[in-house]
Structures are given as C-alpha cells and as structure tokens.
Amino acid sequence: MSHPTPETDVILSAPHVLEYDYRRSLGPVLSHFFSALREGQIHGVKTKSGRVLVPPAEYDPETGESTTDEFVAVGPGGVVESWAWVGTPRKNHPIAHPFAFALIKLDGADTALLHAVDTRDESLMASGMRVTPRWAATPEGGITDLCCFVPEDQGVQTVEAPDEVSEPTQSIVTPVNVEYVYSPGKAATRYLQGLKQGKFLGQASDSSGLVYIPPRGACPRDGVPTSREVEVSGKGTVVTLTIVRVPSANITVDLPYCTANILLDGADISFTGLLQECPLEDVRIGMRVEAVWVDSSEWDYSSENIKYFRPIDEPDLPFSEIKEYC
C-alpha cells in the first residue's frame, strides 16, 4: 500500500563535526624554515632571480623553477603593508582579544608574510608601521612559533639560542575542526520519522513505481521525485554479504561481524544491515532474515534503532530470484 508522502512540519537537523589532526611532512625548505623559527630565526629563500621569498618555498611562484639552496636570515623586524582589524575574534583565531591580521614585509624580504599583530587598540595600527615578533615560550617548529608581531617600539625580543642543536622539524600537526549543522532533507526526515515509530518507510519512484529504502529524495535512475510513501516489511532476504575481520574508524561492532545487503520484502533496492544471532559459517546468500529493534523506549530519529537482523525460519530464496538485486 502506498500513499502520497505527507508533508513534514519539521526537518531534522543535528550538529556534525569534522575533526582530524593532520600530520604534514614538510620537505627540505619548510623543514629548514620551521627549524629556524624554533630557534628564533626567520629565514627566507632566494630564487634564481635573487628575490627573497618569506615564507620560503621550494619553487619560484613566478616561474615554477626550483628555488636556490641559499637561505637568508630576514627581519626580525618589518613593515606592515596592509592590515585588517578583527574586532571580534573568532573561536579559532590566534588571539582571543581584538587584533589585526597583517601582511608584513620583513627586513630583507621581497614578499610579505601573513601574520597577526597585537596592538590591543585599532588606533595603534597603521600601514607602514614597523613591527617585531613575539615568540612562543615553547616553540614546536611551525608558523605559530611566532605568536604574533607587536609595534617595534615595544622592544625587540631576543631569543636565547638553544644549548643543543636539535633535530630538524620534519613534520607539523595541523588540527582541522569544522562544525556544521547537518540536515538530511525531506525524504530522509520522513524515513527517520518512520524509524522512530519502528517502521520502515520507503518511497516509490514517480516513474517506475520501484520502492527505495532508505529514500534519498530522488529516484536516481530517472532523476524524478519519489512522492509516494510505502511501508516495507522488516523481513527480507540476504542478497550478498561480507564478514568483516578488520577494525574500521567509526564502527564499534565487535570483530568479526557480518554485514549483509538485505532486500526487504516490498523494496526494490537492498539495504545494508548487520547480521547477528547466526554463526558466521552459516551466513549465506538467499537466507531469510528479520530486523531486531532496540527497545521501543529508546527509539529515536536514528538508524541505530535497528539493532541488527537475524535469521528466520523460512526457506532460502534461490539465487536466481535475487540475482538482479546483488
């Protein structure tokens, strides 16, 4: 039985965070640059045409040619070429109180370095002003070993050269953390509303009538809406499967486990489910299974309402009947 998909008054949404600490190897030029920073030195590199690039690069951006092996100490002071006053710093900004991002041409350099300038007060910022670096107390070998720059009249900070020459910095860790509010759209919201009631709500293609579960908002074959809602059974047939014996990020199921592509009765596309309550040596294509739900008190807008699938006492379907869904 199908009916037009009811309009939903609410569209679900939830926070989604993308978070990873990337480890980046540096290569010879940036390794030299960051190793020097760790020791309180700012080094540029010379291009074949004699320009001094700060930050240094392996190549001359104007030509693509490799830069020379010649590093040049620049600064530490320099001139602000342009600046932007950040009156309300963002959560991830390098300084928590109002500050400036600035392009700073260090003495002896031919290009300007982007960094933060801390004057506390916008009226103290000006293009052409001279600034000098403030160094991190515990340098780690990275661009943020320079905490920021300050007006030069506040005094030049001298950095003690370390007693021992340490190993060059070979890599940096750059955490990337992006926050989103994710909303899956209309069709997925209807599906999740169904799951919250312990039901599998699929949708039928407007063109072919074939039933999609979970619905994704379109019949992908024909690029048309799936505007009729169809409740499909919690029983189905395994059309193919795998036994996973290797750990995977984001999956907490105990190893080894079986995931199966299951064709629910009444659907025309298979559905990935965990298969349990069955010895792994018995799992097979064609076996009949049913969904096992978590306790109804725990039902939420979530695929996790389905605990797993388990075998049922019905004869297997022959492969010829399910071949086209595999």
Partner: peptide, 26 residues
C-alpha cells in the same frame, strides 16, 4: 580558510573576510 596553504597560512586561521579586508585596506 581551509583553502589556504596548509603549512604557513592555514594554521593562523585567517578567515575569508579578514583576507578580503587586507585586500580592501591595500
């Protein structure tokens, strides 16, 4: 801001508006 050079620019977390502001000031 995630478009920026991941070694020397991105760690400073400069956002797109701040970069445009540097351009505007220039």
């Amino acid at each position: 801001g995630l478009q920026l050079d991941p070694y020397t620019l991105a760690p400073l977390k400069a956002d797109a508006i701040s970069l445009a502001a540097l351009q505007a000031r220039a």
